[in-house]
C-alpha cells in the first residue's frame, strides 16, 4: 500500500491504495469520478483517456502510483461553468449515440487540438481520423465525431 497524491481537476487528492491500483480505478473507485470509463481494459478503446500533465493517456494502462504528484484532468474537469467547446461541439453535431466512448473521445479531441495548435499544424479531417486511432466507437461510425472535433478545433 502506498499513499498516492495528485491534483485532479484542480483539487489536491490523496488516498492510500494498493500499489497495483490502476489510475482509472483510482479515479473511479477512490475519487468516485465515474465519467472516465473502462471499455476494453486492454489499451485499445480509449474510453479511459484522461490528461496527465496536459497529455492524453490511457488511464487503464498506467498505475495510480506512477501519477503521484501529477496534474490530472478528467472529463468532469473540462467544463468551466459553460460546456467546453469540445463538449458543445459533440452536442451540436450529435457526435455520440450511446455515449460510452464520449468522455475518451472528448479528452482525445481536446488533446489533439491543443497539440496541433502548439505545433502550428492544421487539424484537417484526415488528421482527425488518424489521431482517433486509439479511440473506438461502436455506434456512430465516427462521422459526427470527426465533425464535432473539426468544429471545436475552430473554436478552441
Amino acid at each position: 500500500m502506498s499513499t498516492v497524491s495528485m491534483t485532479v481537476n484542480g483539487k489536491v487528492v490523496a488516498s492510500v491504495v494498493e500499489d497495483r491500483t490502476l489510475l482509472v480505478d483510482f479515479i473511479r473507485e477512490h475519487l468516485r469520478l465515474t465519467g472516465t470509463h473502462v471499455g476494453c481494459d486492454t489499451s485499445q478503446c480509449g474510453a479511459c483517456v484522461v490528461h496527465v500533465n496536459g497529455k492524453a493517456m490511457k488511464s487503464c494502462t498506467m498505475l495510480a502510483a506512477a501519477a503521484d504528484g501529477a496534474d490530472v484532468t478528467t472529463i468532469e474537469g473540462v467544463a468551466n461553468g459553460d460546456l467546453h467547446p469540445m463538449q458543445k461541439a459533440f452536442n451540436d453535431n450529435h457526435g455520440l449515440q450511446c455515449g460510452f466512448c464520449t468522455p475518451g473521445m472528448i479528452m482525445s479531441g481536446i488533446d489533439m487540438v491543443n497539440r496541433y495548435k502548439a505545433e502550428g499544424k492544421t487539424l484537417d479531417e484526415a488528421a482527425i481520423r488518424a489521431e482517433l486511432e486509439g479511440n473506438i466507437c461502436r455506434c456512430t461510425g465516427y462521422h459526427n465525431i470527426v465533425k464535432s472535433i473539426q468544429q471545436a478545433a475552430g473554436e478552441m
Binding site: 480509449g46 493517456m57 482525445s108 489533439m112 486511432e133 486509439g134
Partner: peptide, 9 residues
C-alpha cells in the same frame, strides 16, 4: 507507433 495516448507514455 500505437496511438497518440500510447505514444505519450
Amino acid at each position: 507507433i500505437g496511438d497518440p495516448a500510447v505514444r505519450h507514455r
